[in-house]
Write a protein that binds this DNA or RNA. Sequence first.
DNA 1: TATATTTTTGACCAATTGGTTAAACTATAT
DNA 2: ATATAGTTTAACCAATTGGTCAAAAATATA
Lengths: 205, 205
Amino acid sequence: MTENDKQTEEKIFESATEVFIEKGMDGARMQDIANHAGINKALLHYYYRTKDHLFNAVFEKIAGQLFKKFAPVFDEKLSLEEKIRFFFREHITFLQKNPRLPAFLLNEINRNPARIRKLIQSIDIEKLWNTLEKQHKAELKKYNITRETIPQLMTTMAAISVFPFAARGIIEGIFDKLGVNFQDYLEERKTYAAEFVIHAIKKGA
Amino acid sequence: MTENDKQTEEKIFESATEVFIEKGMDGARMQDIANHAGINKALLHYYYRTKDHLFNAVFEKIAGQLFKKFAPVFDEKLSLEEKIRFFFREHITFLQKNPRLPAFLLNEINRNPARIRKLIQSIDIEKLWNTLEKQHKAELKKYNITRETIPQLMTTMAAISVFPFAARGIIEGIFDKLGVNFQDYLEERKTYAAEFVIHAIKKGA
DNA sequence: TATATTTTTGACCAATTGGTTAAACTATAT
DNA sequence: ATATAGTTTAACCAATTGGTCAAAAATATA
């Protein structure tokens, strides 16, 4: 029954995703994943030969998802300012739905940098950047954004969006003491971050 | 020989620090730590009863170090703008010397949020904030920084400083393809980040 | 129904791991 | 020197873990 095959394999994959995200590669146990999927442990090895295979499958899918969320920024026919607003709104919204992703990805990337290198190799970043440059030539000049400052700006934007999720444990702890609600903070952040960045680049550094 | 005692215990602690930072709590092996310190594994348990004890000792010291780096911001007799410049310069410089710290701390915090909660409980954040508010009453008004926007601003600054180290694996991978040097980028970031934030808050969002 | 194929399982294994223990070693004090 | 207390080690243990295997159960095929 190929219908059931997929059900089992999919259930394994979903369970593995949940457990890996929560415990990490090192912390996750094959038995946990099997229990979570309601199947025998040996069945895991039947579909995915080893823990490493299973983890790689999960990791690559997750990383792909996250990268996809960045992609529309390069397509949308929006002004630069509108793109900045679009980015923070969509990206933070996505992370609200997958709040554990940043911490998981950052950890595994640091634990095994080679893994992400391969994924990056397959992306033509130069081309993406050229696209952006053409689309916004006038605006980039206006904001005084050059090839030298682009890495600073891009990493800053990623940082502002991702960091609250990656450091949620500390941030939420502090917020609790200040009576700040983390979810409200995230909602607010979608617009705050956009306006913050737009203000910052106006007139340029 | 109490002299040797301290040497051994210290050597254990240092080795444990290195191994834990590189491998994380789950990934670290007591045997690795023992080898690294050039001693027998049983000796680890002689000085630190369990792996958990040893890890907690390491973790609390590291977390304390990092928090200390934030402290001067609340003492220095500088203007708000100067403090922002001071923060990025000092903080990024500290992280350059301890580049693995952010990834390690973020990971362990997410793996065991309760651990960091205790540390946070011991800090009177309200008092720190009141201090800042008094010192910069006029400037805060001028920049339109309120109690509501402070969490946004603070997390943004932390994000800009910490994220490049936490996400180094990805960032460096991308930079390589663009011919950007990571160390140069970090040097540049000390001033770029400061001016970026100062620009952003001028006139206020 | 009988046969072949695939899926699922329980039992098992070798390796690893955190932790223990008893004995050896060292230093100090009497 | 001898006893005492603290330090270090080698050998060992129980539990865990990723992974294997043969057989059973389920499914498809003839």
